[in-house]
C-alpha cells in the first residue's frame, strides 16, 4: 500500500514541478498563458513558442536524464554489489567530456553536414571509453567487477588528465567556458529533436529490466550466491553493462556529465521501498527525474536567466539528504 502511495506521490510531484517550471523564464507567463499555449497554440506568439519549444523540452529532458542516471546508478550498484557505484563508473562521463572537448578545441570541425558535433563526439567518447574499460575488466570469459572498477577509475583519470592538459593549453577564454559549462551539465540545449534519443533509450531499458528486478535483487547478495540461486550472473552483468553504457551515453551527450544523481537516488529508493522491492527500478527512475526537475527549477530561480550549472545544484541539495539517509540506523545497502 505504501509503495503505491509513494508512486502516486512521486508522479504528482513531477506534474506539479513541471507546471511550476513552465512558468519560469524570460517571458512573463502565468497559468492562463501556459494553458493557452497548449490549447490554442499560436506559432507567431513568441511566449507560446518559448513555452512549447524551449521550456517544455527542457523540463522533459531534465526528467528523462535524471531518471536515466538514477536508473543506471541502481543497475551499477547492483552489478558491482557496492553502494559507491554510479553510472560513470565505466568512464562514460570522462569519455564523453573528452569527446566534446576535442571538438571545442578544434581537433574536429564543430559542425559537419549541419550536425553540431560536441554531442556526437561525446556519445562516441562515452562508448569508446566504456568499451576499453569493459575489455580491461574482462578476464577468462568473465567480467570481474573489482577489475572493472579499477579499469574505470584508471581510464577516467587518463581522460580527465587529457581534458586538463587541453584546458591548460587553451588559447581562448571561450573554449574554457565551453569546457566548464559542459563538465558541469546543463539542459539549455534541450529541444524536441534532441529529446527522443535519451527518452527512447530509457523507456526500452526500463521495459527490459522490469522483468529482471528479481535477478538484480539476488545479484546484490553476491555473485556466488546469485549463481547458486539460479541467476545467470554473466548474462545479467552483460545486460547491465550494455544498458548502462547506452542510456548514460545518451544522457551525457545531451546534457553533460551531471554528478550525484546516479549515486544518491538508488539509496533513496532503497531507503523508502526497501532493498528488494519489486518495482524499485521504476520508482528509482521517477525519483531521479523528480530530483533533476527540482534541481533545474532551483538553478533557474536562483541564477536567472541561464541558471547555475546543474551539477552544482545536484550536489548542494543531494548531499545533506544523503547524509541524513546514511545516518538512519535502519538503512542498509543490501539484504
Amino acid at each position: 500500500m505504501m509503495r503505491i502511495l509513494y508512486f502516486i506521490l512521486a508522479l504528482l510531484l513531477i506534474a506539479i514541478v513541471i507546471v511550476l517550471g513552465l512558468q519560469v523564464g524570460s517571458f512573463e507567463s502565468d497559468l492562463a498563458t501556459i494553458a493557452e499555449a497548449f490549447l490554442n497554440y499560436n506559432p507567431d506568439n513568441t511566449t507560446h513558442y518559448a513555452i512549447v519549444h524551449l521550456r517544455l523540452p527542457r523540463l522533459l529532458l531534465a526528467l528523462v536524464v535524471g531518471a536515466a542516471l538514477a536508473f543506471c546508478g541502481y543497475l551499477m550498484q547492483a552489478m558491482v554489489n557496492n553502494g559507491l557505484a554510479d553510472p560513470y563508473l565505466l568512464g562514460t562521463a570522462s569519455g564523453a567530456s573528452l569527446g566534446a572537448v576535442l571538438v571545442f578545441f578544434g581537433f574536429i570541425n564543430i559542425s559537419i553536414s549541419g550536425f553540431y558535433m560536441p554531442p556526437v563526439l561525446a556519445m562516441a567518447g562515452a562508448f569508446i571509453v566504456t568499451l576499453v574499460v569493459v575489455i580491461l575488466g574482462y578476464r577468462k570469459r568473465q567480467l570481474i567487477p573489482a577489475q572493472l572498477l579499477l579499469a574505470g577509475i584508471a581510464i577516467s583519470s587518463l581522460c580527465t588528465a587529457i581534458v586538463g592538459l587541453l584546458t591548460f593549453l587553451s588559447d581562448s577564454e571561450g573554449k574554457l567556458k565551453s569546457v566548464i559549462f559542459w563538465s558541469m551539465g546543463s539542459f539549455e540545449r534541450a529541444s524536441w529533436t534532441l529529446l527522443p534519443y535519451p527518452a527512447i533509450a530509457l523507456i526500452v531499458a526500463l521495459i527490459l529490466f522490469a522483468f529482471m528486478q528479481k535477478q538484480l535483487n539476488i545479484l546484490m547478495l553476491g555473485s556466488e550466491r546469485a549463481q547458486a540461486l539460479g541467476v545467470q550472473v554473466s548474462y545479467t552483468r552483460w545486460a547491465i553493462l550494455a544498458t548502462v553504457s547506452i542510456v548514460t551515453g545518451f544522457a551525457v551527450a545531451t546534457s553533460g556529465p551531471i554528478g550525484f544523481v546516479g549515486l544518491i537516488v538508488p539509496h533513496v529508493t532503497r531507503g523508502l521501498l526497501g532493498t528488494t522491492g519489486r518495482s524499485n527500478l521504476l520508482f528509482c527512475a521517477f525519483v531521479g527525474g523528480l530530483f533533476m526537475l527540482l534541481c533545474d527549477l532551483l538553478s533557474r530561480i536562483i541564477y536567472p536567466p541561464t541558471g547555475l550549472p546543474i551539477g552544482i545544484i545536484t550536489s548542494f541539495f543531494g548531499v545533506p539528504f544523503f547524509v541524513y539517509l546514511l545516518s538512519r540506523k535502519n538503512y542498509k545497502f543490501s539484504s
Binding site: S26, F27, T46, A50, P305, T306, G307
Partner: peptide
C-alpha cells in the same frame, strides 16, 4: 559578458 538563454534572446529580438 553574461551567458544568455535562447528564451532571453528571443525576448530581446
Amino acid at each position: 559578458y553574461p551567458a544568455l538563454t535562447r528564451e532571453y534572446i528571443l525576448k530581446l529580438n
